[in-house]
Simulated assay, not measured.
Amino acid sequence: MADTEPVTIVVLGVDDAPAGLVLSTEARWNQNEADWRFFLTNGIVFGVRDGTDLVATAALLPYSAGNAWISMVLVTERWRRRGIATRLVDACLDAARQGGLTTWLDATPAGATVYGPLGFTPTLQLRRLRLEHPRQEASETLAIGDLDALNARDRRAMAFERNALLAEFGARAGSRILSHDNAMALVRDGRTARHIGPLFADSAEDALALVDAISRTETGPILIDAIASQEPFIAGLTGAGWNIERPFQRMRFGRATTQGEELPFAVAGPEFG
């Protein structure tokens, strides 16, 4: 198609999950089909098709207390640089305005240069870290965490509820909610790597001890999206062999909402907040 041809934005359904996975796989993202099904079932996912092929997406995932997350902004290679991503984000913002929602997103550095002119305000920063080869050694015993306790700490950190998200994560095959001393985290499958987060702890030492214990029980690559200002935590991870892959910039569009009472050590993922 020529760059000047009109683009029709459509609302996608749960049957589009496999096609969405093709797009995120092309981008080398870690989402799996279960993630796509959650967005398509619980949020609004806008898309652009070329015939029957899905070539671009953007998702709006409402939470509670007037907050929502924008993510899954994807455009296949041959359709990039035509303004499609901006149009899809505008569709998400229009839907959010109709619902009176403040929107958030976690942007890559390239994405942040696009979202800033649209009116997004930078807030905190994240650092994605990867452990490629966990040590297969005996670890301290990990306790099975409680979903209600995880929801409560997540609510204190986010200042709004994400019970449906965390319950769905926790119910997936392979997911675990684990705790050690004063730290707790959710561990789940991704497409290419396991993911730790959200992670809450009373100190960096507690957070690092939990991550170390979890990593000793894993057999493949692990990702964690850490809050950048938790510097002792990140320093401890890199000292233990984790590598920083990329930064993310959290941004907000709309009125400021209530701030959380505690800062997590790691988040659920840039696509979920």
Rank of each mutant, 00 (worst) to 15 (best):
131 L>K: 07
131 L>N: 04
131 L>P: 09
132 E>T: 12
136 Q>A: 13
137 E>M: 09
137 E>P: 02
138 A>E: 14
139 S>Q: 09
141 T>I: 05
141 T>R: 12
143 A>V: 13
144 I>Y: 02
144 I>D: 12
144 I>S: 14
144 I>C: 03
146 D>R: 09
146 D>L: 01
149 A>D: 10
150 L>D: 03
152 A>L: 03
153 R>D: 14
153 R>E: 15
154 D>A: 10
155 R>E: 14
156 R>V: 08
156 R>C: 09
156 R>W: 04
157 A>C: 11
158 M>F: 15
159 A>P: 14
160 F>I: 02
161 E>F: 02
162 R>A: 03
162 R>W: 02
163 N>D: 15
163 N>G: 11
164 A>F: 03
164 A>S: 11
164 A>V: 13
164 A>L: 11
165 L>V: 12
166 L>H: 00
166 L>A: 08
166 L>Y: 11
167 A>I: 01
167 A>T: 14
168 E>I: 03
168 E>T: 15
168 E>P: 02
168 E>M: 10
169 F>K: 11
169 F>N: 11
170 G>W: 08
171 A>E: 10
172 R>K: 07
172 R>Q: 13
173 A>Q: 12
174 G>K: 12
174 G>Q: 11
174 G>T: 12
174 G>S: 11
175 S>D: 03
175 S>R: 01
178 L>M: 09
178 L>S: 10
179 S>V: 00
179 S>C: 09
179 S>P: 05
180 H>G: 03
181 D>S: 10
181 D>W: 00
181 D>P: 00
184 M>F: 04
184 M>K: 01
185 A>H: 07
189 D>M: 12
189 D>H: 13
189 D>S: 15
189 D>T: 14
190 G>W: 01
190 G>V: 05
191 R>H: 07
192 T>E: 13
193 A>G: 03
194 R>L: 13
194 R>N: 08
195 H>T: 14
196 I>C: 08
197 G>I: 10
197 G>L: 09
197 G>S: 11
197 G>Q: 10
198 P>G: 06
199 L>D: 08
199 L>F: 01
200 F>G: 10
200 F>Y: 13
203 S>G: 11
203 S>D: 07
203 S>E: 02
204 A>T: 10
204 A>S: 15
205 E>K: 00
205 E>T: 15
206 D>R: 09
207 A>G: 10
207 A>I: 05
208 L>W: 03
209 A>S: 13
209 A>Y: 07
209 A>G: 04
210 L>Q: 04
210 L>E: 00
212 D>A: 14
212 D>Y: 00
212 D>K: 08
213 A>H: 06
213 A>Y: 07
214 I>R: 06
215 S>C: 15
215 S>Y: 00
215 S>W: 03
216 R>H: 12
216 R>M: 11
217 T>W: 00
217 T>C: 10
217 T>S: 13
218 E>A: 08
219 T>E: 14
220 G>Y: 05
220 G>I: 02
222 I>K: 05
222 I>T: 05
223 L>K: 06
224 I>K: 07
224 I>R: 01
224 I>P: 02
225 D>I: 05
226 A>F: 02
226 A>M: 08
227 I>T: 09
227 I>S: 00
227 I>V: 15
228 A>K: 13
228 A>W: 09
229 S>N: 08
230 Q>I: 10
230 Q>L: 05
230 Q>N: 12
230 Q>V: 06
232 P>L: 10
232 P>C: 09
232 P>G: 07
